[in-house]
Amino acid sequence: MESTIVKSIDYNAYFGDNHVVKNVNIEITRNTVTAVMGPSGCGKTTFLRGINRMHELIPGATAKGKIMLNGEDVMEMHPIFVRLKIGMVFQRPNPFPNLSIYDNVIAGYKLNGIKLPKAEKDKIVELSLSRVALWNEVKDSLTKKGSFLSGGQQQRLCIARAVAMEPEVLLFDEPTSALDPISTSTVEELFHELKKNYTLIIVTHNMQQAARVSDKTAFFYVGELVEFDDTKQMFTNPTDIRTQNYITGRFS
């Protein structure tokens, strides 16, 4: 069942007078992994943060255009609702250092003041941690602080925290750039599992990662969406010469 879940229409983002994302039109299919790649400063992270309205938290940042989530424009919705439906995982693992592993997973409920019965909380914690393949590693130390885990485990904890809110879309902003190679491949394996239940959009500097994990790839260059196609197509026969130059490393 193929269907569009996120669709941007003439999306533009600015930092003050600096036009960083220019007229991006993209359609993202449900239950796929979309990789967004491009050189530094090409606006890919800004675009990603625009999808769940995190962009505008930065002073001086503004955006124009539409981003449709299931046909509803997120620019018209309250950011808090948007962020409940579109989860985000960041570059550096950032579990809440004052909370236990258990509380970190249900942080979205606990810190938002949503009261749940204990049994339901237990269920959410176990399900979320299982989905990120962390349950077996931490089930005996749920009361320990999140910062006791290794970097890769912390990042999976952060993914579990986003997953616990049952969002429709998960955004990843260079999720493995602070991790070692082994943790990186664990997280990459996770993407294949996660896409069964969620739609994933991943910003990455690492072309190989984009190639390995994604179904579709978008290539951004100086704020423009240059090419958006199946990953296989993109890496064997890109249409745009700029994409070809970028993925072959002939970029000046």
């Binding site: 769940n52 995190m54 938290l57 950011p79 808090i80 609702f81 948007v82 962020r83 409940l84 989860g87 985000m88 960041f90 570059q91 550096r92 950032n94 579990p95 809440f96 250092p97 942080a107 979205g108 810190l111 938002n112 003041g113 952060c158 925290r161 986003a162 809110m165």
Partner: peptide
């Protein structure tokens, strides 16, 4: 990143 983590979970400013 701590603030961003909190905002990304849909938490309002005062929380």
């Amino acid at each position: 990143s701590l603030r961003e983590a909190a905002y990304a979970l849909g938490m309002p400013f005062h929380r």
